[in-house]
Design a protein around this nucleic acid. Structure first.
Lengths: 215, 215
DNA sequence: GTCTATACAGAGATAGAC
DNA sequence: GTCTATCTCTGTATAGAC
């Protein structure tokens, strides 16, 4: 009996422990990326420091470098995460939702990401992360994936006469994705007169109306 | 005779030389601000260094500090300059131009500033200059001035049934000014498929259509 | 893998001679 | 007012003990 247990132990525990360690490792990495994402959303890529992230997670700066080669890689991982989350959100939309409503849902998602100070999907102009991100294959692939999805909906909405068919579909796509870093939200919020919900409504509405088919 | 000349000399030359010096001083400051403006447009506030600016002007970094107390003040001056230039442009529009066309001209101006890599009128999200700029009275005053002008045109266009009267005029204003830092331009330009002129046309058009009165 | 301590680099700002 | 040389601080990244 004890032999049997020992055997199980010998056979399995090392594997279990290894798996456990890996889970811990991955959990820690996720915590780091999430913290980086939040800080980047609040302060921007340049202003956020690696130390900030380490503090937020509760580890030492040097430990962080065991997980990520540097600030660029860490932030690129954060960008990949937000693109992936967006992709998941889009794929979970009810199958019954018509293309135009999918686009509206995407717009709202992008704007809310920005307003809640999370990592916006789009880098703002002149971000120092733009270069490293161009070289990050994981990011580029995730983005291409999103683009394919969205372009499809746009073309359907154009065929349905809801989106201006005179606009190339990639122009429409850029117009929508650009809202993720639209300064309008901050401008309006800083006025202090309107609620966040109201601001998002206006932004969604004016964007889609601008792309709608004309009479 | 020599006495007379001397007298003129004594009386006027000091004044002339002083005026000359002041002109030089002002010209140098303008050159500095202009260089800062360009560099800030290209690289952004954080990435641009004071040394960059000094090099571009052809002076030493320390000399620059005789003109401006620091980087913040220098960049604030650059922002004031671009706001002032925009104000001049708007006031020079032909008196016959109807309000909606004035707004269109403003939009085009803002977008072209951005595309030509000059200092955009709007800071992009999370710029480190945002704080200092809030404290800069000259900037705030210049901006208020612009706002008053533009709000007036918007209300006229609303009364003429061209701009959606359901939108508060300051919301329309924010929507327009935000285009100055709209990431859409960069996104489209990076695709490499369209000309700058085409891009600006689409951006102007989709923005104004989004704000137009609905059927 | 985590920590403390430190090296290294870049950029803002200043000192002091001319 | 301009210059060269320097200070100082901050932030990325690494060394080395445990």
């Amino acid at each position: 009996m004890t032999e049997a247990i020992d055997k199980i132990g010998v056979m399995n525990i090392p594997q279990l422990r290894r798996s456990f360690k890996e889970q811990m490792h991955q959990a820690r990495e996720e915590a780091i990326v999430t913290a980086a994402s939040r800080l980047m959303g609040k302060k921007g890529f340049e202003a956020m420091t690696v130390e900030d992230v380490a503090c937020a997670v509760g580890i030492a700066k040097a430990s962080l470098y065991k997980h990520f080669a540097g600030k660029d890689e860490l932030c690129a991982a954060a960008m990949v995460q937000v693109v992936d989350r967006t992709g998941r959100f889009l794929r979970e939309l009810p199958a019954s939702l018509p293309p135009l409503e999918r686009l509206r849902a995407l717009l709202r998602w992008l704007l809310e990401l920005q307003l809640t100070d999370e990592m916006p999907l789009m880098l703002s102009r002149n971000s120092g992360l733009a270069g490293p991100l161009k070289a990050c294959e994981a990011y580029q692939a995730a983005l291409r994936d999103l683009h394919g999805l969205v372009i499809g909906w746009i073309e359907q909405a154009q065929q349905a006469g809801q989106i201006n068919p005179a606009l190339p579909s990639d122009v429409v796509m850029c117009a929508i994705f650009a809202r993720a870093a639209d300064p309008m939200l901050r401008l309006l919020r800083d006025r202090g007169t309107y609620s966040d919900a109201q601001i998002v409504d206006w932004a969604v509405d004016s964007c889609l109306s601008g792309l709608a088919a004309r009479a």
